[in-house]
Amino acid sequence: MFKKLYLFYRDGFKNMTVGKTLWLIIIIKLFIMFAILKAFFFPNYLNTHFDSDESKADFVRQELINR
């Protein structure tokens, strides 16, 4: 069963034509998105500033009241 599955995917990937280029694009894209953009440019604002849900709630409440 697992061998069949393995062979199915192995042959599928091996016989790809345009698919190889597409996989390369997908991998580069995901790398840029997660390893560069998410890691360095898109920290979760509340998670990086506060540890608990209560402190996040307090912060947002202050924002809602004072803004």
Partner: peptide, 8 residues
């Protein structure tokens, strides 16, 4: 990503 960073 933007929801978490820009629209927290």
């Amino acid at each position: 990503f933007e929801f978490g960073t820009n629209w927290s």
